[in-house]
Design a protein around this nucleic acid. Sequence first.
DNA 1: CTGAAAGCGCTAACAT
DNA 2: ATGTTAGCGCTTTCAG
Lengths: 336, 336
Amino acid sequence: MVTMQDVAHRAGVSVMTVSNVVNDQPHVRAATRAKVLAAIAELGYHVNTAARSLRQGRTGVIVLAVPEIDRPYFGLLATLLIERAAARGYDLVVEQTAAARDRELDAVARSRLRSSDGLIMSAVQLHDDDVGLLHGDFPIVILGERSFTQPLDHVVMANEDGGALASRHLAERGCRRIAMLGGRTGAPHDDDLTTLRARGFLAGLVAAGLAADEGLVRSVALTFEGGYQGTIDLLAETDDIDGLFCATDVVAIGAVRALSDRGLRVPDDVRVVGFDDVPIASFLTPSLTSIAPDHAAMADAVIAMIVDRIEGSRDPHDYRTFTGAVRLVERESSRA
Amino acid sequence: MVTMQDVAHRAGVSVMTVSNVVNDQPHVRAATRAKVLAAIAELGYHVNTAARSLRQGRTGVIVLAVPEIDRPYFGLLATLLIERAAARGYDLVVEQTAAARDRELDAVARSRLRSSDGLIMSAVQLHDDDVGLLHGDFPIVILGERSFTQPLDHVVMANEDGGALASRHLAERGCRRIAMLGGRTGAPHDDDLTTLRARGFLAGLVAAGLAADEGLVRSVALTFEGGYQGTIDLLAETDDIDGLFCATDVVAIGAVRALSDRGLRVPDDVRVVGFDDVPIASFLTPSLTSIAPDHAAMADAVIAMIVDRIEGSRDPHDYRTFTGAVRLVERESSRA
DNA sequence: CTGAAAGCGCTAACAT
DNA sequence: ATGTTAGCGCTTTCAG
């Protein structure tokens, strides 16, 4: 391994001068800098980041903990965050929690995460009580829906608005029996994504003058399979559905497939609206109407929050929540 | 910050004992261990991984450099690799290279990557000449197709076999004018994925007794848009295509959409085969016939190669290539 | 503008 | 079974 010492010897200067060159410090003569850079190139030197981190007490790394990156939404999210983190001089490391509560806790406690400067946590299973663990001096931003009574930096999207947009849109397109897949009712004090989107969905129905039938809101796994099986089950019980709101695009894709397998045409027999507006939505047949969150604004907010926190440019007791706007993008799956 | 010193004081032992407890070393009495663990919990101690890395000369981190994780194939890949790396005691860090050659080179040279124990590189733009940079003592495994004359650890899939499976399958289903999207011809010495799949595709046509028309092999961006536009362009020139092989499922999804926009039915008018067998394939309408690589076996091979290399359990001059098998999964897009 | 010294927190090697 | 010492490679601090 080549060290700064080696470079210093080769260039005939001290280690400090090498360090100054490596870190672009101003007070180095051009000639000296050139000598050092030549020595670095000749020896193939690379700074040892472990040593640098140990000395500086910072790593330049932010961890993003998500349930699985193998989901269109998280892939998109990670892409945006990596780009923005890089712009602020940080590397982003992706950690998978598999949506398990202990893995999420682990993510907070794990040494490697502690060996980063901050944590962006897409927490789907953490409880309010767990959040105590998130406290202390370590910079953490929660991304996504949970009801936390504790003060926290938090970035969410307008889930209720999105749900309401979906049901009102379907009602406007003439639907009268509208179901929701991937929604949860009966947990008034829990504010996870499925509850919030369901709440907005029901409110939208009422606003459109339709009955808010909680029996038509079904909780399913937010996967292709969940959407597929949920639709099959729903159709087995009620055969007169003419509108379907799915809590995520992935669920919607499974649902559309199930509708087609049951001989129902989209949008002619059943109109469908998804949520997330993942890139594939416009290439499906039929293309998928979806609630589009402002991913870019949310990514900006997340990075700004965590970096400002890391760099100490924010009041330690000032916690913020940013809510990303949503809009409805109409495509064929709900068109007249 | 809490250090081992602090824990040692609190527990009334030496730092070495704390270190031994933290690292699960055997020679610690149960009572001592309990005292130490209690002190750790009380103080909220976490090992400083920078210090550990500096001391040990290893980081426990493997970097996976991919063009973009926001693509189904790479998402799937990352998920599998993360799991297997963890099983061998390594964390996997995902780095995006945006499929740019300088970014890929950068990925090799960058200090943070040098601050990992090894690099898994899904290299789409590196040239043979660049590979010199990959050499030296640093453990690197190349994942995916490039023609390298230099000795390297390399994991690929049977791309030519896959291409041949696709064209023979389409021929068996009665297609006579079969095109390929996302293939490249005329670069006999380049062995990237698009060239290999095209080569196999043409060979399969010949094997099936059909003419191998290179004019029907089109190079397109391996994206939804690439597949869409490529199909539109193709149909503008030739209107009698009855079979279409796409170099990736993503391209196929764009292509199916374009066919539908041009009033052609899949599979009735045009049969379509993709490549990668991404999870969404079976939920599309029509579901997508695809060449399915043995992702799991490839992930196993990659991790085994890199970890064995890192841990020095392989001859430094013994470089290997692993080729993952492929099979055809027939679904509606090509069914009779 | 450049250099010398100290020490970040941890663990390998060697005591005891 | 536990303790002592040294030093990993770097940068902060202070001198020149």
